[in-house]
Structures are given as structure tokens and as C-alpha cells.
Write a protein that binds this DNA or RNA. Sequence first.
DNA 1: CTGAAAGCGCTAACAA
DNA 2: TTGTTAGCGCTTTCAG
Lengths: 337, 337
Amino acid sequence: MKSNITIKDVAKKAGVSISTVSRVINDSKPVTDEVKQKVLDVIKETGYIPNPLARSLVTKKSQLIGVIVPEVSDSFVNEILNGVEEIAKMYDYEILLANTYSDKEQELKSINLLRAKQVEGIVMISWIVEEEHVEYMQKCGIPASYISKTARDYDIYTVSTSNVDATYDMTKYLLDKGHEKIAFVMTSQDDTILERERLAGYEKALTERNISLDENLIKHGTTTYEGGYNSMKEMLDQGVVPHAAFVTGDEAAIGAINAICDSGYRVPEDISVAGFNDVKIAKMYRPKLTTVHQPLYDMGAVAIRMVIKMINKEILEDKKIELPYRIEERESVIERR
Amino acid sequence: MKSNITIKDVAKKAGVSISTVSRVINDSKPVTDEVKQKVLDVIKETGYIPNPLARSLVTKKSQLIGVIVPEVSDSFVNEILNGVEEIAKMYDYEILLANTYSDKEQELKSINLLRAKQVEGIVMISWIVEEEHVEYMQKCGIPASYISKTARDYDIYTVSTSNVDATYDMTKYLLDKGHEKIAFVMTSQDDTILERERLAGYEKALTERNISLDENLIKHGTTTYEGGYNSMKEMLDQGVVPHAAFVTGDEAAIGAINAICDSGYRVPEDISVAGFNDVKIAKMYRPKLTTVHQPLYDMGAVAIRMVIKMINKEILEDKKIELPYRIEERESVIERR
DNA sequence: CTGAAAGCGCTAACAA
DNA sequence: TTGTTAGCGCTTTCAG
């Protein structure tokens, strides 16, 4: 049973040459039915499994696709990963995961690690796209697609949803519900492009209503629950009490809700809260979170399909795919009386 | 830059033989400092990366460890995975993940897939341990460790926490808080051993207080949020209103809480709820979930350390490692007045 | 339709 | 200390 059985053993036992065995396992060339059956029997009998290492070494195909993520346990990432994985399996690719913890150095290391492992393509999920890394990957000529909220500026294959529009729409929605003092808690770890874009959407909506930007209502946090909690807590402790809070990440939004409750306010009665992404927990928490729904699973699926197509040298219609988002009205935002 | 550079190219460019190059990249044999430097320079210059496929083919070491899980997105699994991953990286192993969706067939397929991919060992996370699969793995002689709540019965390497004791303790805790009608919602997809064990713990605690088992208070659900929601909803709809509910999984417990709230009761004022595992969301939800804390990260770390040791033929003191659990008192359980 | 042989990129004896 | 050489298990010409 120990997998020491090689193609040679099978060939000997079946009384044929190794090339014949190779032909039947790949059915790459015609083989007499009789011989074929014989070989198949021996394979079953011995429990032979072809060694993919040896195979890859000669074919240069590893059937491996690398996926680089900022943090596996982040639910946003997680749900995208589901899509990536399922499609990969469908096409008989294996996923090699690399976690960067949003560290630029680590990201570069991961690229090299994956390259070393002979991945045929890479799906990159990243909060911020590093120009340097983009160039590096292009120079390596490795098929890649990006899932990122800031990738549109580069000449690379990306799947995304529109940030500015979504932020604008949600802010507008909040405004329409009668909220004027809207806290804006960003969750984008010191990235300038992303924050700038989002801020632009937020600002645009306010400006349309002739509401001026209040710096005290803006916080730069992180994507985590703790990030949202701390940002909100800080604001409240400074005596700034908004009508509503728009937090650009669901876990952080829930952190914010808890901070609000811990400070003695109620959600949504006193302060409405809106999130971003629509991850699983958004429906589990009470009050259910009103949020910007993103088709996470699909984003993953589309991204990996792109790289598989690139691997197969198929033609891709679009370099940039933008998937639709929508505002998912639930319970955490109510009309302000 | 394209990684077509082989050891040969480096050798030629450095004016040495390929074995010398091999020696410096592995520093397996002494090489003159001068020559070494020369080779190192060429490597840097060309951006050469050794092909691990070729290397593995000859050394028979893939630096790959397979991890089989019932469901990546389950937070219990997820948090264990963090531990597994981190330790793997520490020892320079790469993780190959296989998702079985708790399907027996798929699990067998995964074992073979991983075997085919030449993994050096396997960490198996599974709700139920299949005897058949255990035997198969043993026959293959592949180093493996199991994280499972029902693995103790087999002669295999396992890491776990004590189910019966934990269930007993939590039930007792609930009893001590003055709850007598305690709903018991299991989350173990039709597994008999696990359910039997847990039920035993639950029953033992009740018996000690001379409380007889009420079948109406017992539900067999699934690990998911929905599973917990539906089980609880069903019970309530049948007119059975317990003093407390003990749900053997946190996500399901939160589902149960929501079902309770949706039926017009309050948690914990009307009905207390306790969970199991202590995953991230247990602290995020409000009321914060009182639950059985399990050292998830450590379980993963210990499990993979076991297989790494087995790979290195080191001696393992224990075949069965049982990690401590504890009852984490938070807000979802209160004293019954 | 089948076999012999070359070679994928690397490591590990074995000589020198 | 270094180079030569024989494979690792497989696919793929190239002859037959």
C-alpha cells in the first residue's frame, strides 16, 4: 500500500513498457483495448498513484494556483476564498494559500514562495496594491488577477466593486433617513488611495446636502472588530455623538455598535449604524446589520476564472470586472425622528 | 526574470559545476569562501530560485503537510487552522488544505489527493472519525494526527478536550444558576459517539440533581447558525420554554439566542443560553456568550507538532493529548430568580 | 500501436 | 574541496 509503486513497477507487472502505462493513465495516445485493460487492472491492484512531482517536472504544469491574502481569518477574505476554492477544484487546481498579515515585505516573500512552488497563476487579495509588486509580477510573467478596492489604477486584471459609488450611496441612504451628523469610520489601515476614494464618496453625498465635513466625525481604524470598537469608543469619549455611523467593514461595524451600547446609547434607536461588505456575521448579529452587500463568493470565483483563462491562453474580454453591489437594508439603521 | 534559470545556468555563469552550486544553496558540504561568494553573486544576479519539484523528487521530501477539514469557513475549524498554519510555517512546511464538507466519500478522496500530492503528513480535523479511514491511513503509513471529539477510541494520535466532562460541567453550572429545565441542543450531525458522550455528560449532571430527562428538551441540530436557530425555534414553537439552553456550538448558540428573541423572549432575562468552543464571535455578540472555552489555536499547534515530530521520527511521549477547557462566564447566562 | 531513450532540475554518492 | 555521474518518476519525441 505504501506509495512506493512507480510507473516502472506497473509496467513490469503488466508486461508492457512504461510509455504504454503513461499513455493509458493520460490517455494521450491510442492503446489497444486489451493492453489498456491489463494496465488498468494492475493499477487498481497495486493502488498505483502517479507522482505529480515527476509529472510536473517534465510538463511544467503544477496544477497549483497561489492565493495571497492579507488575513485568512478575516471574514471578507474568507468568503471570497470560498468562491476561489470551489472554482479551483472544478478545474482540478489545488490552492496554495499565503497569508501576508498585510505586510508589504511578507507579500513580496509570498510571491516568491509561490513562484518557487511553481504555481501557474496567482490570485491576489489585498487591501492595498503595491505598485512595486505589480511590476514584479508582470516581469515574472505569471498570470495574476487582483481582488482589491484600489486596483483599478493599474494595468492589471482586477475584480472589484465601485468604492466611491457604494460609499456615496450609503451615505446618501443615511442622509435620506434623516441623519445629518454621520460618523465615518474607515477600516483601511493607512492606505491613502482607498481612504481618499471612500472619503470622496462620503463627502460628495454630504456636499449635495450642503453639509460641511466635520473632522471630528471621521476616524481611521482597522478592519477588525477591535478597530471598530476603539474608533467609536474614542469618538464617543470625546463627546462627539453622531446620529449615525457608517463603518466601512462589518466586523468593525459590530465593534462600533458594541462601543455605542457600552457607552449607554442604543442602536438603532439613538444611533444608527451601517456596515460594508455583508459578511456572514452581518445577518447573525442583532440588530441585523444594514450594510453594503458585495458579491464576495462571486468575486473570488471570477478572479480565479480569470487566471485559469490566462493560464490556458484564452482571450479575456475585460481586464477589469466590476461586480454590482447593493444596499442591504436591515435593522441597524432607522429613520431619525 | 522568468524563472527559467536552472542550476545549470548558474553553474555555467559562475564557472563551477552544478554540484558546487547545489552545495552552496543547501550548504551541505564545505565550499571555499571565494567560490561560495561567486555562486551567491550569480544567484542574486540571475534571481535564481531552486525548483522544489526537482528537489522533492530526489529527496522524497515535499515540505507539504495536508490538513483535512470538514469546512474551512466554520469558525471552530478556522481558529484551529491558525495554530496549524503558524507552526507549519515555523518549521518550513506548506499547508495543503482539503475541505470535505463532512462527507465521508469526500474525506477518502481527500486522503488520496493529499497522498498523491506527496504530503509528508496529515492533520485531520473531523467531527466524526471514520474507522475505515483510520485503518486506511495506517496502512499507508502516513504520519497523522487527529483533532476530533470522538477520536479517543482509536489507537491513533489525537488532540482533544474532554467532551463528557465539559458537557457535565456546563450543565452543572447551569443547574447551579438555578435553571432546571435545561434545553440541550446538539450540533453534531447525526454522529452517534459524540452525541452519546455529550448526552452522557448532560444526563449525569441532571441525575445528580434528581432531574429526569425530558425528551422535549433535547434537539439534534447542526453546527451552523441556522442549525441552532431552527432547533430552538422548533422547540419554542412546540410550546416548550426552557429556563436555559445549552447549545454545543457557539454559532449555533447565537442562532438559538436569535430564535429566542424572535419568539419574544429575552436572553438572558427569560432564558439563559450557553455555548461551546469559545470562538471569536462569542465575545462579539451581545449579550456576550457564556461558553465552554477550548484552546483552539493550541489544539491546532499541538496537532501539527505531533505530525512534524512523527515525520522526523522523533519519539512522542503521548499518543493522546487532552487539553484543558474551562467555563467562560460571560453575559448570556444569569442566575434564575 | 508500442518500446527505447532522452531529459525535466535537482541531490548524492563516488572519484579525483 | 570539487567535478562527474547516476538516478528520482514521469512525459514525449523518435523509430519501428
